[in-house]
Design a protein around this nucleic acid. Structure first.
Lengths: 346, 346
DNA sequence: ATCGGCGATTGAAAGGTTTCAATTGGCGAT
DNA sequence: ATCGCCAATTGAAACCTTTCAATCGCCGAT
């Protein structure tokens, strides 16, 4: 079969294989494989020749066959809590960026806080034999994660700490975040703080609240009220704010700390529509510092979480574990940062 | 090898194969495969028995091997313009939802408007032999798309029309969107309209502008000014709004039509900070109707694009083409819809 | 009792890559 | 001139599933 015949075959549908390349280049398939995977093992002349043939024939490596032989997919799976919250897409972007450097694809799924959807994605990733998994667990998945690891899929937990020392994790110090928030509000003269978020069962909520409470406890004359919500979206913020507006004037807070920026935006809307001046009457402080915080009508102060960094660090941990499964399990805790804008009087 | 020995082997890392299942169940591998793929061909007794063994052994199908044999990956690739814009994640969610029903994974990449990143993803998808591709093209990719199709990967263009009749596409009628917008603004008494967005090279921009212009042309006494921007984010909106504020009072527009909601949010912010009252002094109308539009401090009126529907329809076209490659190429055009909120006086 | 037919099951081939033990060829050292 | 070594290359096996032609076993019909 001549080169042009093979090229024609390619055009007609069946794709060009290493075998085709080998015969067109007059070398063995082993050599073609070496050109692709260990170019340093091949003599310069052969290397260049085979590469040219590859180009001429338009050969594209069949990843399924590679996977089959290698026993594992180069892809990484990621299950994210909610793609509609920019916080998570920003984390995912950090992951994607880092994986791109290693030419590894990302298969991204969103659980939408639903344990069943989460489980479906885990099934999928298991069938795909992904080499690694990034997850912010929703349901009871520890046994599944263990099984995955036994089968050779490394796991890193994102935006959570596992408690157990079984899997590496990357999270942000939420107690510190709560402290930063309350310190800022109290430090700018606010006295009656409110924290809107929930549900209380979430570790993050507990920690942020605890951090804020510790500050209030240290400052006589200040108070903190907790308004619990079922979700953490703009609607929850609106409702929370309305419940606060319904309070008698002297009990009404002069500062609202929202559990995330979506909630904060909802709060801002409710206050604006009610004619409450921000930040003059009430300060608003968000959490995450998504792009929309800076773009709000009244730019939102926020506690910035290093989102992209979280994705990058998690990816680094994962890739390290994939390269050397014996690598040490690590729990990395990143620090949040206060960003002051107009909504708290910046 | 007994069942328990095999189970133990599984625990030690090597994963359980159809062969293991077959020998444990005392049937041939062909029968196991039939149980998985054509259960109706297998006698009820055998079916149930093999299924139980599969469960006991924790067998998980190796998708790479399946792909290799089938010649194509069940996964669908999608290249989206910008994951940071909720518009695109909403479209992707529609896609993901529909694919989930068919147990097909989605490999999602974001080009960030960068032709090189787009090309990298196309390489990846080609190696993966994905069975279908959804794309909003950035660079000159028509030849690549043709090659993909020759190799058996179906392609559907999303949020664009191709012009050529080669690939199916799903888009929204932007001229109509522009008309709806201008009609609403003119109909509520606005006279001096401005359109902020760009670059003008984008088909969408041209069409929305053309739609708005046609309405203004039909209404004597009204005018439309085009403020071109390089990007379509909140920053662009801020700058565009500031340039309008710098105009002499009598030339200043009384309504701003933004090319998307991100731009509109930027406009809202600039006007709010400048003390301009919305909607009293200036009305703002966005485009897309992302969730954040409804959550803005002054809820934004917007031209809603059926985002999830776009994703679903595109997926349906793609799956139809995958099942029958001879199926007709179709260009589907969806209709946008006006959503009136406070920012235009709703 | 035999045969045809049919549903159920089998078993081997195929798919494309990687790996690795084996082979080749060439060169320097003796 | 010969040997040994090393770099370069080879070629077959292995990865796991699906497919399909071939076979088996059974039942009803003759």
């Amino acid at each position: 079969m001549t080169t042009s015949e093979i090229a024609r075959a390619g055009e007609q549908g069946r794709s060009v294989s290493v075998k085709d390349v080998a015969s067109a280049a007059g070398v063995s398939v082993g050599t073609v494989s070496n050109v692709l995977n260990r170019p340093e093992k091949v003599s310069p002349a052969t290397l260049e020749h085979v590469q040219r043939v590859i180009g001429e024939l338009g050969f594209i490596r069949n990843d399924a066959a590679r996977q089959l032989r290698a026993g594992t997919n180069r892809a990484i799976g990621m299950v994210v809590l909610d793609v509609r919250n920019p916080f998570f897409t920003d984390v995912a972007r950090g992951v994607e960026l880092r994986l791109g450097e290693h030419r590894r694809p990302l298969i991204l799924g969103s659980s939408g806080q639903d344990a069943e959807r989460e489980s479906t994605y885990l099934d999928l990733f298991e069938e795909q034999r992904v080499s690694g998994l990034l997850i912010s667990p929703v349901g009871k998945v520890l046994p599944r994660l263990r099984r995955l690891r036994e089968r050779g899929t490394q796991v890193v937990v994102v935006d959570r700490r596992t408690g157990s020392r079984e899997f590496s994790s990357v999270a942000v110090d939420d107690v510190l975040g709560g402290r930063l928030a309350a310190t800022h509000l109290v430090g700018t003269g606010r006295r009656r703080l409110a924290f809107i978020g929930g549900p209380h069962g979430l570790t993050q909520i507990k920690h942020r609240l605890r951090g804020a409470e510790s500050v209030v406890a240290d400052h006589p004359g200040t108070s903190l009220r907790f308004v619990e919500t079922a979700t953490m979206d703009a609607d929850a913020g609106r409702q929370g704010a309305e419940s606060l507006l319904a309070l008698p004037a002297r009990e009404r807070p002069d500062a609202i700390f929202a559990a995330n920026d979506l909630v904060a935006l909802g709060v801002l809307q409710a206050l604006t529509l009610a004619g409450v001046r921000v930040p003059d009457d009430v300060a608003i402080l968000g959490y995450d510092d998504i792009d929309f915080a800076a773009s709000a009508a009244i730019p939102l102060s926020s506690i910035r979480q290093p989102r992209a960094e979280m994705g990058e660090v998690a990816t680094d941990l994962l890739l390290a574990a994939i390269e050397d499964p014996a690598v040490q399990v690590r729990d990395i805790v990143l620090e949040p940062e206060l960003v002051v804008r107009r909504s708290t009087g910046g």
